[in-house]
Design a protein around this nucleic acid. Structure first.
Length: 1143
RNA sequence: AGUCCCGUAGCUCAGUCGGUUAGAGCGCUACACUGAUAAUGUAGAGGUCCGCAGUUCAAGUCUGCGCGGGACUACCA
């Protein structure tokens, strides 16, 4: 006969190791997919991690979430394919390689060839692949690591190219510019990543100018001129005066109040009228001067009078036109208009913002929206340029296009400043005391009555980390995807996605979509997917390549045209999908850069040197992992869109977005139907984990200390996935001891007795109706649990599901069912009651094992296999291959659950009363009384009476239904029912309730209604409107909880006393049995040294004592041989000697 | 700066539709039990529900404004 495995000690780490090895041997993961081969698919996408960094504890978090639902859906009968993936491109890899090689970006192509550099990247990016593999295995994350998608693979790149070509065909790819940090000293653009290096932001002292922009007098501005007789100026502040020459607009805030102020220019003494934010008046005008008369002012006076002559909303200023401040160059398009800017504040400056679209990202954005032209120059090559060249100086006239100068440039005015560096830092040859452009411009404005205020201003400004020179925000060429064209559709589709939590979807993600800008695809780096776009030198013709075979054909044409000598893709065999074929080529730089194509008109075409944003790589994974459409074209419907994805909330604008954008633009579909975004894993103090602070948790160490199951269970049940998790190893240990320990104990208990009785689940199921109350109860709770776990798992709420399982195991199964059923397992013959107990407990353990399997895959499998090994109920090797339990609604019984709840509560109350009275539980007591019991309550309690009696060791339960005068009652208003009816009167009604006398309460009880008079109004209350509880029963110990009162009779009669002592005696005998190591089935002889108390006690409880202790003979003796006897004390002052021997 | 999340006992977290005694586990203290024993149970202490204002008969719960922690995005005259 097969036995249930029994263990000496409990070690979760050991269990995990054993099960892990078993899975390998058994191919359990493969089986879990194979056995569902023809089942409906549940599509899951793995967000690719980068193996360039070591995995951390937060990866255990997100992968646990992923694993849970994949395993759960497998149990529910779906086929869940899980392809791993690796993110291999991007800046982090490049930076780490630069560090490794001790080079900078500038060295690439100079001191090290691109070829060699990229080779290093390819190698480095997989540096920690093995470590990731270990983590995956040790934490029990089931994913197919043998066939991963890899973003640097040529097949992967080909699909990405296909997607880009599709976008190009739809006209969604275009070349534009963005304002990016640029270092003129280094001659290179900087990424935000580089800008965030420590020490990049430094305090600098700049000349700041509050400039006066002269309002044009026209129909629109007439209302302003009606109020004053001077010129009217809009005030705008800047810390970079050199950008004023590129100003093309002014922005005001629609919610900001502006003041129109009549005053004088402090430098020229001229009377002027200026407009600025009302809130900022005090920074420009001294409150002390407000009573000065305008007409008393003389040029040169220190105190300048001012008068607010009007106030208006920002909206009223919109559309005003003004004269160009520094009229050197004429813009090509609409300009010099007041527009609304969403980001305008009154924290600093004037509340009116100077807009130079060529030198500010925000400026560029609001100007585009308002249709304002940027100030462009045309250089000798015919290119549009900003006013500053790449070396950081104003363009010289020689470098500009002649026609352009003729038509747009005020040569005389500009000539004075052309060629000047905007920051002296950019020109090493300038002496320290060289004139500063900003200062010269300020002086010029001052003289022209265009400067309202000039001062030095200290602020923090980013510097280039390589040259230490200030950076410039500068327009750089970039390729864009016109995502804005699909904004509405993306929003629409987003509404169909089930976000967990929903706030991330509607809030963070929704808002992001609302404010969508075009996707900047360009990265001027080396290691990444090259942009497959070839352009003629005159920029007039483009080709976007969408496949390797397409590229091969184009090259062949180029070779024919004599543009290329040979075809580097010569050995590539179009149409052959073998990996080997694809490994013959390399689509990375520098090889693609060497490819020159020929245009339809016969011109040479060169590749645009940019790489694409790595986020496009990962966003393409639904298709690229399948090499779609080159392979898997037919079964894409089974793989797209995903039913479920999960990643950290930091991916909202990363992977979640790129998946969504590409799916919307190309497939007009969502990429995923359900998405869980989990929060951060912080240390136990709530700080971010970092290697620097030394507070990072090593996932391997944690899992080997506490076991992966405990780690996973802790992470899932401690906080909702989307809340940040404060990770405390002590909490993991608590889970290990409490949850898994309890479950292990419960199993051990079962195994111990099942093995003794030879229970193998061979008997027929005891019919539900024939099982005892307690069994039917736990089965009811079990089914309720299954239903609730299923509901929550279906709703992607693993935390709630886990907590429900926990509650069942602790409160219902261990603390109540097993504790109350213990006797049934070890007492008596192998009756049907015993079989029922075994079947019931077995069923509970088995079901719990299945329900917890997604969260704690190792322990659950161990538990399941130990059970199944002996019973053979399931013909599968693992818990992960069974079907999720069906809810048997017919076996749930709400009344039963409720009355067991009552039994627990009453037991707890009685135990508490015993405690207070100092009467131990072994001392039987006569009765408890429950007053004011409704008929329902009474029927309910009668069914659990025996349980309560046994649990708290009392003889009887009495129900007091009639209100005999002995009960002292208390009444409380039912706010929920009275509140809506009486509203404001509630305070007085509460008072009236408090003043009710015992007779009043009885009247309400007996007649079902009672009437108050409040403010002359008759208030009739019914029994629904009040809660009546018994506060006290004279002479008895009373406890009230949840409107239920229990009174305990503390009287101990002689016979109760004797019974109590008999129990003590039994207890001592049992102890001795145990001490002596008797088997639980051994029969014994007992001799006791008698005394008067014992004589009656034993006589009156003789058979009870014998049956409890398996005593064949029990005798009272006048003397005992002391050497074989033991001294026992039955209670304070009652001691004797006893001899216990095996028969 | 914007968007989002979080703030309840020493710690980690529940708290339904707003309903008057705010709960659990751990930890701490005291005890009980001893055929689950490296197990189990009971009781006790412990609260400015982050603050202020508002709505309401009634606010931990709803609204507004703050404070603190965190994330993402943008970096600003």
């Amino acid at each position: 006969m097969k036995k249930y495995a029994e263990y000496k000690h409990f070690d979760l780490t050991e269990i995990a190791k054993e099960i892990r090895e078993f899975w390998k041997e058994d191919n359990t993961f493969e089986k879990s997919i194979e056995t569902r081969k023809n089942a409906p698919p549940f599509v899951f996408y793995e967000g690719p991690p980068s193996a360039n960094g070591k995995p951390g504890i937060h990866h255990v978090m997100s992968r646990t979430i992923k694993d849970i639902f994949c395993r759960y859906k497998t149990l529910c009968g779906y086929r869940v394919d899980r392809k791993a993936g690796w993110d291999t491109h991007g800046l982090p890899v490049e930076i780490s390689v630069e560090k490794l090689l001790g080079i900078t970006k500038d060295d690439i192509g100079e001191h090290i060839s691109v070829e060699e550099y990229n080779k290093t990247c390819r190698r480095e990016v997989m540096k920690y692949k093995d470590l990731w593999g270990e983590l995956t295995e040790e934490m029990g994350y089931w994913i197919d690591l043998d066939n991963p998608y890899i973003t640097f693979d040529n097949k992967y790149i080909e699909t990405v190219w296909y997607l880009l070509a599709t976008l190009h065909e739809k006209g969604l790819l275009y070349k534009g510019y963005t304002i990016q940090p640029y270092s003129p000293a280094a001659g290179t653009g900087l990424s935000t990543h580089e800008l965030n290096q420590p020490g990049c932001y430094k305090d600098v002292k700049d000349t700041s100018v509050t400039a006066q922009f002269k309002v044009q007098k026209d129909e629109k501005s007439q209302f302003l001129f009606d109020k004053t007789d001077t010129d009217i100026f809009l005030l705008a502040w800047t810390t970079t005066p050199w950008t004023l020459a590129s100003n093309t607009a002014l922005a005001v805030g629609s919610g900001i109040k502006y003041a129109v102020v009549k005053t004088f220019n402090q430098y020229t003494g001229k009377p002027i009228t200026v407009i600025l934010a009302k809130d900022l008046l005090h920074t420009f005008f001294n409150e002390k001067n407000k009573d000065l008369k305008l007409e008393d002012y003389r040029k040169g006076d220190k105190n300048i009078p001012f008068e607010v002559i009007a106030e208006l909303d920002g909206k009223a200023l919109e559309g005003l036109r003004y004269e160009q401040l520094i009229p050197w160059i004429e813009p090509m398009g609409d300009a010099f208009r007041v527009i609304l800017g969403d980001y305008v504040t009154t924290d600093e400056g004037t509340g009116i913002v100077h807009i130079a679209p060529t030198f500010g990202a925000d400026d560029d954005r609001v100007a585009k929206i308002a249709g304002i032209a940027p100030l462009h120059l045309i250089d000798k090559d015919g290119h549009k340029r900003p006013m500053v060249d790449l070396s950081g100086k104003f363009f010289t006239l020689e470098d500009l296009d002649e026609d352009f100068i003729k038509n747009y440039v005020n040569k005389d005015a500009y000539a004075e400043y052309a060629g000047r560096y905007v920051k002296n830092d950019y020109n090493e040859s300038l002496p320290e005391d060289a004139p500063i452009l900003d200062v010269d411009l300020a002086v010029m404005l001052k003289q022209n009555n265009q400067a309202f205020k000039i001062e030095k201003y200290v602020h923090s400004y980013p510097h280039c980390w390589r040259t230490d020179k200030p950076i410039l925000y500068y327009p750089m060429d970039s390729w864009f995807i016109k995502t804005t064209d699909y904004k509405e559709r993306m929003l629409e589709l987003n509404n169909t996605i089930n976000w967990k939590p929903s706030s991330t979807g509607q809030g963070r993600f929704g808002n992001w979509l609302e404010n969508l800008v075009d996707w900047n695809l360009s990265r001027s780096r080396y290691w990444g997917i090259p942009l497959p776009i070839w352009v003629t030198e005159d920029k007039k013709e483009q080709k976007c390549i969408g496949s390797v075979s397409g590229l091969k054909e184009e090259i062949n044409r180029a070779v024919e045209a004599g543009v290329m000598n040979s075809n580097p893709l010569e050995h590539f065999d179009p149409g052959n999908m073998e990996q080997e074929n694809y490994d013959r080529i390399d689509l990375h730089r520098p090889y693609v850069d060497d490819i020159v194509l020929v245009s339809d008109t016969g011109k040479k075409m060169f590749r645009e040197t940019d790489l694409i944003d790595v986020w496009f790589d990962s966003g393409s994974m639904p298709y690229a992992q399948l090499h779609y459409p080159f392979e898997n074209k037919e079964n894409i419907d089974n793989k797209f869109p995903a039913d479920f994805i999960a990643e950290g909330v930091d991916q909202t604008r990363g992977w979640f977005f790129t998946l969504h954008a590409i799916a919307t633009m190309i497939f007009d579909n969502v990429a995923y139907k359900n998405v869980v975004s989990n929060g951060l894993v912080l240390d136990k103090e709530g700080n971010k984990m970092s290697k620097r602070l030394g507070n990072a948790i090593d996932p391997f160490e944690n899992m080997s200390t506490y076991g992966p199951d405990a780690t996973r269970w802790y992470m899932v049940t401690n906080a909702q996935p989307w809340d940040n998790l404060k990770f405390d190893p002590a909490g993991v240990d608590e889970i290990r001891k409490k949850f898994f320990g309890t479950l292990y104990n419960t199993y051990s208990f079962f195994a111990l007795y099942a093995n003794i009785d030879g229970f193998n689940y061979e008997e027929k199921e005891i019919p539900h109706s024939e099982r005892p109350e307690l069994d039917r109860w736990i089965i009811s709770e079990l089914n309720t649990m299954v239903r609730n776990v299923k509901t929550n798992m279906d709703d992607y709420e693993p935390t709630k599901a886990g907590r429900i399982i926990q509650k069942f195991v602790y409160d219902y199964l261990s603390n109540w069912y097993v504790r109350l059923s213990r006797r049934r397992f070890w007492k008596g013959e192998y009756t049907s009651d015993k079989v029922s107990a075994y079947q019931t407990l077995y069923k509970c353990l088995e079901t719990v094992a299945i329900l917890m399997a997604p969260i704690s895959p190792f322990f659950s499998d161990k538990l399941f296999r130990d059970l199944n090994e002996a019973s053979g109920r399931h013909h599968v090797s693992s818990v992960h291959l069974v079907d999720f339990p069906k809810v048997m609604e017919e076996k749930t019984d709400k009344d039963l659950e409720e009355r067991m709840q009552l039994a627990q509560q009453i037991s707890s109350q009685v135990l508490s009363l015993r405690k207070k009275a100092g009467i131990r539980v072994r001392q039987p007591l006569n009765k408890i009384m429950i007053p004011s019991a409704s008929a329902k309550l009474k029927t309910q309690l009668e069914k659990v009476e025996d349980l309560i009696k046994a649990e708290v060791n009392i003889k009887n339960i009495e129900f007091l239904t009639e209100s005999s005068g002995v009960l002292v009652k208390k009444i409380k208003p039912n706010f929920k029912s009275l509140g809506p009816k009486y509203g404001k009167l509630m305070k007085q009604i509460t008072k009236a309730f408090n003043e009710m006398r015992q007779e009043d309460i009885e009247k309400l009880e007996n007649e079902g209604s009672f009437t108050f008079t409040i403010e002359g109004r008759q208030i009739e209350i019914g029994s629904e409107d009040a809660e009546i509880i018994t506060e006290d029963i004279p002479g008895l110990a009373v406890s009230t909880m949840n409107n239920l009162t229990v009174a305990l009779d503390l009287t101990i009669t002689e016979s109760l006393k004797q019974e109590g002592i008999a129990r003590e005696l039994i207890n001592r005998i049992q102890n001795i049995r145990k001490e002596k190591g008797f088997d639980v089935t051994d029969e014994i002889d007992v001799e006791i040294l008698q005394n008067d108390t014992l004589k009656n006690t034993v006589a009156n409880n003789f058979s009870y004592i014998c049956s409890e202790t398996l005593a064949k003979n029990l005798s009272l003796e006048d003397s005992l041989n002391e050497s074989q006897a033991e001294q026992i004390e039955l209670e304070e002052g009652l001691a004797t000697m006893i001899k216990v021997n095996k028969v």
